[in-house]
Design a protein around this nucleic acid. Sequence first.
DNA 1: AATAATTTGTTGCTTTTACAACAATATTAT
DNA 2: ATAATATTGTTGTAAAAGCAACAAATTATT
Lengths: 153, 153
Amino acid sequence: MIKEQHYINTLYYQIEQTAKYCRYLGSQVFNKLNLGINVEEFVTLDTLSLHGEICQRDLAKLILKDRPATGRILNSLEEKELIERFADTKNNRLVRKIIMTNNGKKTLKQITGILKKYLEKIPHEFSQSKIEEIKNNMREFREILEKEVEMNI
Amino acid sequence: MIKEQHYINTLYYQIEQTAKYCRYLGSQVFNKLNLGINVEEFVTLDTLSLHGEICQRDLAKLILKDRPATGRILNSLEEKELIERFADTKNNRLVRKIIMTNNGKKTLKQITGILKKYLEKIPHEFSQSKIEEIKNNMREFREILEKEVEMNI
DNA sequence: AATAATTTGTTGCTTTTACAACAATATTAT
DNA sequence: ATAATATTGTTGTAAAAGCAACAAATTATT
């Protein structure tokens, strides 16, 4: 129980430290493979592919980035012609919605395939059911934190 | 199984997203309470309290920050007279080791107490055994990732 | 109707993080 | 002995994250 008196032994800090490894792994793989986009852009494409035609702010809430950062990622993706933006309305408000271009869909598919073998080999030491269990725990913990944390997105 | 084809449904990304909430919560609490130090400095003090008299690079490896960042955190802590640095040797090499001042120890204890109630109320929905289990999973996953990720610290 | 507040997206700036290069010293190789 | 390599810490700079303020348009309040 003495351990618990240290912040670095809390669940919060343990998750943060583990996330750093995940982040470093991601950017190292992307750097090594020279895929033309970075991790953030890939994550954005992947998110868009599961949520067609959402506005920028809704996207920001999904990728947990603020509006300026989200806008800049989209600028870059648009320059690379992987997405297009168009004006639309949501609750009578003018918004910019996003669609992936065919090239964007192709690129996402392609990179997903390339990444697969880099990301698959690692959690092989965890069973699939254990992975699912940890993911559920993460989701559950996020839901708890959502109530406490002001996200400002 | 279709879900698995998306990066955003991998364990990596789920952990990263959860860590963002942890990070935001931490900095929001520190901001609100005006404690005189930031989260990074607190984590550094907490780490030091568990590893007496280590050199800067070894500290960097523990807090997962690079050497420049670690040095700058220590500069700030030294200015605030929460730590002191002294020259020593490790394997015949000149290093700078760190000790916490009495004020540093007092400050750590004090802030730990203040934080306790902010951090405790949240994972109340998780049982203590579940928390321990998730922490073990995080540690285990980090050990797997350690083999794959070049940390450069 | 006029004012205030809200939503969405952008711009600009500050802080933080990441990274390469360097100095100083020690070890290893030639 | 000399040169090459490695370790530790610092400095400087480039990239990214965080945040406040703004513009434009809509809804709510008075």
